[in-house]
Every structure is written in C-alpha cells, then in structure tokens.
C-alpha cells in the first residue's frame, strides 16, 4: 500500500438515527498512518458516534468509510474481520466480569484470530508487563481499580494487533488520580507509532498527544488545527466559546 493512502478515510459520512436525529451531517476526515487525531467538542456533537462508525458499531446512512484505501461501508462487508483490525476502548472499560484478566485478553485472539493459546498467553503477559499489571493476570476485573481495568481494556484491544485504535472518552469514568496511569499508557502507544482516533474531554491530554485536533459541533467538523494553534488561537467562534468553558475566571474577593 502506498504511503499516500490514508489508514482511515471518511467521506461525507452521514449518520441519521431512526428517530430522525442527525448525529453526523457530512463528515470527511483522513487519518494517515501513525497519526494521532484528537476529537473534541461539546457533548452530543457526534464525536463518539464518529468513532463508532469506523468499526461499524453504528451503520451509516450516507457517504463512505475506507480502511487502508478499501471501502468498508458496502453491503457484504465482514464486520468481525474489520473490527479485528480496528481496536476500540470504551468509557466504561466493559471488561467481561465472568472472566479473569487473562480470560479477557485471550478470548478474541484464540476464538477470532485463531492464535494458539500459548502464543496469545505470552503476548498477553508481555503487554500486561508493559502496562504494569503482569501480576494481575489471574485476577477478576472486579478486583482491580478503575484505572487498572481501563489499562486491561487497552491491552485487550492491543491483543488483536490492530492497525487503528479508537479511544472513546477512556478517562471519563475514572477517579482523577487514576487518569494519569491510563493516559501514560496511551502516550506510550503514540510514541510507538500507533494510529489513533481519540475522543476526549481531557484538553491537556489532547494537546499533549494529538498531531491534529478536530473540533466538532452539531454533527459537523467545525475546525481542524494543530493542537498548538487550536488551544491558543482557535479560529471559529464556536471553538473559542467551547474552550472558554474549560477556563475559569478568577474570583476576586474584595475586603471592604
């Protein structure tokens, strides 16, 4: 595949729910290999929906989506095969509660990719080591903290050796002191060249990790900019307004 072919390419993607709500109103976006794209915007702007269209969890009603130049939004697409190449991590971790950490990690590689148990196991242990959870392989998810569960969820997605990783507000359910340990793992992945689409409310994180910021509002991309420019001098009034909500005016107390 040529260097010019985007890893993920969305063209005029339209998502309309059966109740008539237009979640995406013509979204186009190219993501190149090893690029990290941060997607921000007010709640309900369609950013999570956008991620979920890439692995077909949300079927689209218009436009097209291509993976490595191959259009996947056509009838007859084998979504399980696509999803095996597109990893996703969710806000609520969604580890399987009846399986151990190792069981969670082995399920997809052994049942879908048909990797041998021994090989999958050694890959799992290496990845757990990397996120600092090598000693928790035999624990059940409920024995782990939220931050640890989310790190396991990231490893679970990595087990399939995805070409792209979709991260959907992965720190939104975490206690503040656990956010860092999860974001550090993601920063490590970015350094290794993982292609990622990251929906987040952590503006500092988006600024630190993203090569490009996509600002969405009402189902459309309103602004695309490098983080340095987006967070200091956003062009669109809507983005300026949005970013203002993250800064608090200092409250002055006047002693009379």
């Amino acid at each position: 595949m040529g260097a010019l072919v985007p890893t993920v390419s969305l063209k005029d993607v339209v998502k309309t729910y059966s109740n008539g709500h237009e979640a995406l109103r013509g979204v186009s976006l190219d993501v190149s290999r090893s690029e990290v794209v941060g997607i921000v915007g007010p709640s309900g702007c369609g950013k999570s929906t956008l991620l979920r269209t890439v692995n077909g969890l949300e079927p689209i009603q218009g436009g097209s989506i291509a993976l490595d130049g191959e259009i996947i939004t056509v009838p007859g697409t084998s979504w399980p095969a696509i999803r095996a190449k597109v990893g996703m991590v969710f806000q609520k971790y969604d580890l399987f509660p009846h399986l151990t950490v190792m069981g969670n990690l082995l399920l997809a590689p052994t049942k879908v990719a048909k990797v041998s148990k021994a090989e999958a196991r050694s890959r799992a242990l290496a990845l757990l080591e990397r996120v600092g959870l090598a000693d928790r392989a035999d624990d059940l998810p409920r024995q782990l903290s939220g931050g640890q569960q989310q790190r396991v969820a990231i490893v679970r997605a990595l087990m399939m050796e995805p070409e792209v990783l979709l991260l959907d507000e992965i720190t939104a359910s975490l206690d503040p002191e656990m956010v860092r340990e999860v974001l550090d793992v993601v920063l490590g992945l970015a350094r290794d060249g993982m292609t990622m689409l990251i929906v987040t409310h952590e503006m500092d994180f988006a600024r630190a990790i993203a090569d490009r910021i996509i600002f969405m509002d009402e189902g459309k991309i309103v602004e695309v900019a490098p983080p340095s420019r987006f967070f200091t001098a956003p062009e669109s009034p809507r983005a300026q307004q949005f970013l203002n909500t993250f800064t608090f005016q200092e409250v002055h107390h006047h002693d009379e």
Binding site: N55, L57, W79, P80, A81, R83, A84, K85, V86, G87, M88, F90, K92, D94, L95, F96, L107, A108, K111, V112, A113, A153, R156, A157, M160
Partner: peptide, 12 residues
C-alpha cells in the same frame, strides 16, 4: 456495553 465491546474485538 458487554456485547458492544465483544463485537468491537471482532467476535461474531
């Protein structure tokens, strides 16, 4: 979320 995350992993 359970079936969503399983489907996202590529499980049929």
């Amino acid at each position: 979320g359970q079936s969503q995350s399983a489907l996202a992993l590529g499980l049929s």
